[in-house]
Amino acid sequence: MPKLAGKEVGPIGYGLMGLTWRAEPPSQEQAFEAMKTALSLGSNAWNGGELYGSPERNSLHLLNEYFTKYPEDADKVVLSIKGGTKPGQLIPDGSKENVRRSIDECLNVLDGKKFLDLFECARVDPKVPIEETISYIAEYVKAGKLGGISLSEVGPDTIRRAHKVYPISAVEIELSLWVPDPLENGIVATCAELDIPIIAYSPLGRGFLTGRWRSFDDLPKNDYLRHLPRFQPDVFDENLKLVHAVEEIASKKGVVPVQIAMGWVLAQSKRKGNGDIIPIPGATTSDRIKENLKPAKLTEEDLAALDDILKKFPAVGHRYPAEHVHLLDA
């Protein structure tokens, strides 16, 4: 079993973003049911954010409510929270003042209901050396207020620089059949070398790999996916070729595309010298969570076929809009 901050976690974690950060978030009752389902099926590595919602309502508030109702679950969950942005804005601020503000706010909202196992800045602040930002977070770890430090959307050089200041417990990056780049750009290799587990977010390509959407018009009118380059009308059909290819493999194996996508990410863990890779699919219903937790078992022949597909149908378009690209360190 992989470990985060010294604690054992299941091979598949759970992303909380969609429970509080969307135009119409699910009810508390539905959110609690989803969280309970994930935990009951072994997904105890939970990933949320101070920025997943508003300063008045985000992952931390939902978690406080959940652990108030289910205090017996607190020690079962290994919790990672992203913060480090300006309050109410998606702008990174790695200064001592803001890092302290962010961590203090997270701890204040949790109100002792749950220990904060991992804290990470959602993005690296280009105005503050990573060494300084990590040193501020490390003060809280040394004081016993945090379990460890993780990083988000960082490249090999930043990982090494941060790790020299204080041991990094995890690196969170986007990794999926739609975003296999970390396997080639040195991120996965660097983490393996330093024995740092990888938390893979959006393992289903933000839902694209499920085959749910067949055209740009299928996307909900208020969905942020409509603003992402890879979902735009001029490239949608080209990117859909990958989905069709994955569907063919799924059909041959008697499974659904979700199971192939999840199986592929899990198969990268420990493959070809890689370290632990823990995907954290997000879902707001118990049925979706159950589906995500039934990954296909892929043979080397399957993996080779998927490798060929990735070469034949590389994703077209950047992962994020142009105004956000400069904040990606990877």
Rank of each mutant, 00 (worst) to 15 (best):
V235N: 02
T190V: 13
R230V: 10
L177Y: 02
N239A: 05
P92Y: 10
R101M: 13
G49D: 06
D195P: 02
S80M: 15
I198H: 03
L4V: 07
R230Y: 10
Y320M: 07
G155S: 04
E97R: 15
L242N: 02
G53P: 13
V243T: 07
H61G: 11
N292F: 14
I168N: 03
R288C: 00
S150M: 05
K272P: 06
S102C: 00
D117T: 13
L118W: 01
A322E: 00
G273Q: 11
Y320E: 04
D218C: 11
D287A: 04
L194F: 09
L79W: 04
D125F: 05
I249N: 00
V316Y: 06
I260G: 05
E24T: 03
R226M: 01
L303S: 12
I149K: 04
H244D: 04
L310C: 07
V9E: 04
K142Q: 15
A31P: 08
M17V: 03
V179T: 15
V179D: 11
P126A: 08
Y166E: 05
W21G: 03
F236I: 12
T190K: 08
D73K: 09
N64Y: 01
E238W: 07
G112W: 02
V316E: 06
Q268F: 14
F231W: 01
Q28Y: 08
I103R: 03
S80G: 15
K142N: 13
F216D: 00
E153V: 08
A45G: 07
S215R: 15
K113T: 13
K86M: 15
Q30S: 15
G10T: 03
P129M: 00
I278K: 04
I289T: 06
G48E: 04
K86T: 15
I134D: 09
D307C: 13
I277E: 06
H227L: 06
L240A: 12
R123H: 15
I198W: 06
A162M: 08
S102V: 01
K82Q: 12
V154D: 04
E132R: 12
L306A: 00
P203F: 03
G275N: 10
D125N: 00
F313W: 11
P25N: 11
H244W: 07
A45Q: 11
D73V: 04
E174A: 14
L146W: 09
G148E: 05
E131Q: 02
E33R: 14
N58S: 02
D287P: 01
A322M: 00
Q89A: 12
P2A: 03
I289C: 02
F216M: 10
P229A: 11
D218P: 10
S95M: 14
V124R: 00
P11I: 13
S202D: 09
L16G: 01
D117G: 09
K145N: 10
A138H: 06
G94D: 10
D276N: 14
W21P: 03
F67P: 08
G205N: 11
I280L: 12
L175I: 09
F216A: 08
R319M: 07
S286G: 01
L4R: 07
P180G: 08
Y70I: 11
A143K: 15
K311C: 05
